[in-house]
Structures are given as structure tokens and as C-alpha cells.
Design a protein around this nucleic acid. Structure first.
Lengths: 229, 229
DNA sequence: AAGACCAGTTAACGAGATGTTAAAAAGGTT
DNA sequence: AACCTTTTTAACATCTCGTTAACTGGTCTT
């Protein structure tokens, strides 16, 4: 993931500097503005992932800045900082769409933790495409239990998918039998082992149309999924 | 939008009751657990939008409960409540994936505002108004519960529409049964499952005039809406 | 080479999941 | 209350898939 870009608007120079330093050290890309107007300018210029705004600032206060920012981007996370803990202020903050509201003195670590929590939520709009494994000319979608070869497409069963996934995750390496059995069956005994063999046999059949793919046995140890080139 | 379902785990009966009352009055659907274990049970049974967990509780503390919940759903918002303001606790909270961390005494209005802020972020971006799905030769207007084929038009029921929408949103991919049940019924049990089957059967009938459309079952997982070309 | 496991494959079995229809229950309207 | 619509529950038929069994051949150890 790319670094998180932070817009920090804080008129207290020394506090602003300290926070900027701390956040930068923690891998954030921080731009510092010392009043609301400057904050707005910076915002218009760059693309940010989160805004941290002091409420009491000269020229333009944090609330006004926040609403200006909201006009441009109704989705960007905003965190307010303030010296006094006035309840009305706090509620006003959340009403203009704040994501958090911190009372000074702020603890840098806590600020960092809260930023992380907020950005984590806001940064995943797109639905994650279920991971798809490429197996020679096959492709295997674990989430959807789908194995496809060209236009042909079959839906395999849950256990088949589990085992094939485990093989794919260890492609070229041994998938240890006992490990796999404990993972998928909860324990390893004679019957589970035989059951696994049945599934391996089924998977081999599914994958037989591409001769470059093979599931090889390692006597007494497990199986290896191999894809030759 | 449906009401926000809140799981509140708080062992202090009177505080728990007060918060439940307040949040309920503000339009939240609140279920109260008086210890961690009960909280976990409630969570497993129902579908929630956010969890508010006291940290110090008998039997199972809030951190443990949170990590159990995270095992099941890595995306649900979690807010911690605590009496003492220990920095290590706070950071630990954020590290297990908290979205917020409030120190008692909590102000109900602030809690409500924070919940709103968090839930706003986590709710999936619903597609916009008047979305009409194209299904082969059918078209389906979810808002108006209308399914039409040519100039024929039928109005389907709310549940039918909900399920069809969920299927459409996952077209070509598995609509997970438990996910759907928790979304639409609030919980997943034997009877809901059978009820869902009945609706699937009805939808299949509605859609039977276009043979390129099918609702396929994936044994033990859910259903896939497929539209061949 | 012989014995002792290990693995490959196919088929049968049965618990549980699903398909479908109909009746009952739950809501809502007049 | 009588009526309607929607949803749930019941009942029964059918299907699915993980397991187990059975038989075959393979691999290792001695």
C-alpha cells in the first residue's frame, strides 16, 4: 500500500512540528499548514488520505476549513484537534462529518493509531477480487470454487477447493500430509489420509487436460503441485 | 437504510441499560450482553453493524471478545469502552483493530456521534437510486420490486427482491448462504435456510422464461446467478 | 524377495443439503 | 371480522459429497 498522505493544519508551530516529525517517522507523508487558509490551499493542491485539523486557528478555523474540504470531497476522513473539551464543539465536529475528535494534549502514538484505524476503513472501496491462481492453462478461483480451462468452467466442491488451494499455496514445494490433514480435517488418522487420497485422485482428473500440470506424491510425506514450463 | 444493529457488551448493568436506552431512543437496534461470553453468543447468532465492548468484564474480557469476533468477521467496527485511561491499553485496543476507544464516563451523545461516524464509513457504498439490473432479457428494478420481460411486468415481494438483488450484486460469483441469511434475516438457522430455499425456488420460476439465466446451487456454500451469452 | 506400509482408483453408502409444493402463520387492509 | 398478501413451517422427494470399503499396485526396509 502506498504511504498515507496527511494534511495537518495546526497553528501552534511547535506542536505542529512535533506531530509532523512523529508521523513522518511512522511512515506518513505529512504536509503542515499553519492556518485554515493555508490548509485549504494545500488541500486543493495535493491529494490526501486524511486531514487533521486544529479547530482554533487564525484566519480560518477548523470547522470552516472542514466544510470547505467537504465541499470538494465528501468522503475524505477528517480528524479534529482541540485544546478544550467542549461538548458542543465535539458534537458540532461530528456533525460536520468528523471521523474522530481528539482533545489536546494529544498523544502521538494514539494519534497514529487512530489515523491507522480510520484510514484502514476508508481505503477499501473496491471489493476484493477473490484471489485467482493460474495453473498452466487452468485458472482456479478459490472463493468461488471455480476451475476453468478456456471457456469450460466447473464448480468444484468445498474440500476439493480447500486442498487445491493448499497445493497452489505450496506450488513446487511439498504440501505436508499431516499439516494439511490437521488444517483441513482437524486431525490426522488413517481414514482422513485415505480420504485425502480420494480428493487428490479427483483433482488429478480435473487437471488432466493440461499435461504440464501434475500432482506428485512424495512417499510418506505429502504431495507437490508441479507446473512445468 | 436499515437500522444500525449494535452489540453492546457491558458488565455494569446500570451503565449498560442507560446506554442501551439512549441508543435505542436514537434509532439503533441494540442487543446487550453482560459479559464477554454472552457477547460472543449474541454475535454468533445475529448480524451486527458495530460492536461496543467494555474491556473489563468477567469470564471473557473485551480484548479477547474482540479477537474472537475478528476471527469471524475481520471487517466489523469495534469500539472499546474502559474505565481507566491506560495508554498501553489504548494502543493494544487499536492494535487488535479497534475503530475507537472511549474512556468512561462516556457521554451518550458523543458515543452516538462516534458510532454514526464509524458506521458511515464501514457501510458499503450502496449503488445509487433507480438502479436497474439487466438480466438476460429480463430487467429488474430493485427499488420498485419490479421484474419485467418485454412488456410483461410483475411486482415481486420484498424478500424476493432482496435476494434477487444480492444475487445480481454477485452475478457469476457465489452468494454465500450464511452471509445472505445474516444480511437479510439477521441470523442463520435451519428455518431461515429452508425459507431461503423457498424464495430461490420462486425466483427460478420467475426467471424461467429466459433459459440463459440460471440460479445454481453450490452445495453447502450458497447460490450463483449465471447469465450465459 | 518378502513383508509392511503407502498410494491410486473406483464404487457404494448415508448424513445432510436442496427442490418443490402446500399448508399454516403472520401482517396488513377494508 | 373477512380478506388479502407475504413469509414461515412442514412434508416429502431427490441430490450431493465426504467418507469408507475394497481392490490394486507401488515403495521402502530388512
Amino acid at each position: 500500500m502506498s504511504t498515507t498522505r496527511v494534511l495537518l493544519a495546526e497553528d501552534d508551530k511547535s506542536l505542529g512540528y512535533v506531530l509532523q516529525e512523529y508521523l513522518t517517522m511512522n511512515g506518513y507523508n505529512v504536509q503542515l499548514a499553519s492556518d485554515g487558509k493555508e490548509g485549504l490551499k494545500l488541500y486543493q493542491r495535493g491529494a490526501f488520505d486524511i486531514c487533521i485539523l486544529d479547530i482554533m486557528m487564525p484566519i480560518m478555523d477548523g470547522f470552516t476549513l472542514a466544510s470547505e474540504i467537504r465541499k470538494m470531497d465528501e468522503d475524505i476522513p477528517i480528524v479534529f484537534l482541540t485544546a478544550k473539551s467542549l461538548k458542543v464543539d465535539k458534537l458540532k465536529g461530528f456533525n460536520v462529518g468528523a471521523d474522530d475528535y481528539l482533545v489536546k494534549p494529544v498523544d502521538e502514538e494514539e494519534l497514529s493509531a487512530r489515523i491507522r484505524a480510520i484510514v484502514r476503513r476508508s481505503k477499501k472501496p473496491e471489493k476484493q477480487t477473490g484471489q485467482v491462481y493460474e495453473l498452466g492453462s487452468y485458472s482456479f478461483d478459490y472463493q468461488n470454487q471455480r476451475l476453468s480451462l478456456g471457456r469450460e468452467q466447473i464448480t468444484i466442491t468445498q474440500k476439493e477447493a480447500q486442498i487445491l488451494k493448499a497445493l497452489c499455496d505450496n506450488e513446487g514445494n511439498i504440501l505436508d500430509r499431516n499439516t494439511a490433514l490437521r488444517e483441513m480435517w482437524g486431525q490426522s488418522d488413517y481414514f482422513n489420509r485415505r480420504s485425502m487420497d480420494v480428493f487428490i485422485s479427483k483433482l488429478r482428473k480435473y487437471l488432466s487436460k493440461d499435461p504440464s500440470i501434475s500432482i506428485q506424491n512424495v512417499h510418506g510425506r505429502g504431495f507437490i503441485l508441479k507446473v512445468d514450463q
